[in-house]
Structures are given as structure tokens and as C-alpha cells.
Amino acid sequence: MSKYNITLPVSPNLRKNEPDITKVIRFNFSRRGALIYIAHLDMLRLFERALIRSGLKFVSSQGFNPRPLMVFALPVGIGVEVDNDLVEITFYGGPDTEQAADKLNASMPPDIRITNAHYEDRASGSIMAMVNSAEYTFMHKDLSRSVRTAMSGEVLNVTKGSKGKGGKVKDVDIKPLIHKLDFPDDNTIKAVFSAGSKNNLRPDLFLKALTTDSGFSLKNALDTVIIRNRIFLEGDHQVAEK
């Protein structure tokens, strides 16, 4: 027998009271500081928890393991700073976009900031499928020379795959995936790479390519600051000539 004879409060069932209308908001966000060292799965968890903390009424998937309907345009790797990435989240009703951004910001560690929010009302399709390229900034004192050397060749090969058991190793020419290269100063390069589900050049793979031929050490590659400045979606811009 229980020694407690009390009635505990009960909150209303949240889902039953939700309006049926759902809306998608696209958020632009940045990430810096300590949080550049977290992996993509950790980013997903961090955004999910921030969403719950924000109190915003988000829509979840159905099934055994419901998750918020939340799609990142392009996963971001460990060590990459972000100026302006994109994530789309589906909400019940139509929360004010500015308020939604404020609430999310108040629920996020300071190293991640929502910088913009707007309704996205295209008929269908995932934002992931719309990504075609991304702009990156790389910073290291020995970088420009190595990149110039590397780009002077016919091809720029990089070894892909793991050398472990059963791993297939092959050389891939990444040159066709590099659409634009600028050298604003000796320590900085700006580049536009193919991105998305069809062709994707990861920034760390580009740096790895430099270590094979162009005398850029692995330590230099790991020490190179990588910033993803923006993601281009189909129709956003014309891919520049090489």
C-alpha cells in the first residue's frame, strides 16, 4: 500500500490539441568555437534537443521511433566552421518566423546561432536534393603555394576508401568537382566545390589531395581553418567556369 494519497497534476495531451496545418521554416545558421568539433549526428541531436527546449510545436515522423521532421541541406564534417548553412523544420500552425528563430537561439549553445528564418512553401522535394555546390574558405600560411602547384597538373588525384580489411582503395580525380578558386591573399583561398547527393567534394578531402603531391604536410592540412561560407541550391547561382 502506498503511503502517499495525493493527486498529481496532469498536463493536457499535446498532440490532440494541435491544429492540422503544418508549415516548413527554413533556418540559416552558423557554428563556431567548440561546437565545430561535433559530428553530424551530434548536430542532429543538438538541434532536436534545442527544438524541445524552445517549446515550439514541431511535427514528428510517424512510427516506432518518432523524430522531428528536420532536414539539413548538407551534413557538416568535424572541424568545419559554418557561416550560413540551411535546415528546414516542420511546425504545427504557423509560428512567426522571427519568434521561432529567437526561441531557437535562446535554446542553443552560444556557438550555434540562427541568423535568418523564412517560410518555405515549395510543393515537394527535399532540400538535400536541391544542393548543388558550396563555397569554402581555407586559411593556412603555406596553403596558396600548394594549391597553385596542385592545380597546375592535368588531374588532382586523391585516394578514397579505407585500406582496412575488405576496403576498396581507388584514386579519384577531384579536379572536375572544383568550380572556382580565388586567392584573396597568401594565406587564404576561397573555393566553390560540387556538393550534394550526386557529386560532393568534402573540404578535408581537398586538403588531403594537397598532401599527396604538393608538399603540404598532413599536420598542415589538419591545422588549416575550414569555413563553409554558404550552400548553393539549384537555381541559386550559375556555377562559374573553371
Binding site: 568555437g33 567548440a34 561546437l35 568539433y37 561535433i38 559530428a39 551530434d42 543538438l46 534537443r49 534545442a50 527546449r53 568535424i78 572541424g79 542553443m108 549553445p109 556557438d111 599536420k219 589538419l222 591545422d223
Partner: peptide, 17 residues
């Protein structure tokens, strides 16, 4: 270069909610 050459560097940087 150290943080990027070890497993799960998120464990060594703090910045948690």
C-alpha cells in the same frame, strides 16, 4: 591538428548546454 586526429574530439572541448 590534435583534436582532428583523435576519436570524438567533442569530448575535449566543452561548450555544452
Amino acid at each position: 591538428h590534435i583534436l582532428l586526429s583523435v576519436e570524438k574530439p567533442a569530448r575535449y572541448v566543452g561548450g555544452e548546454w
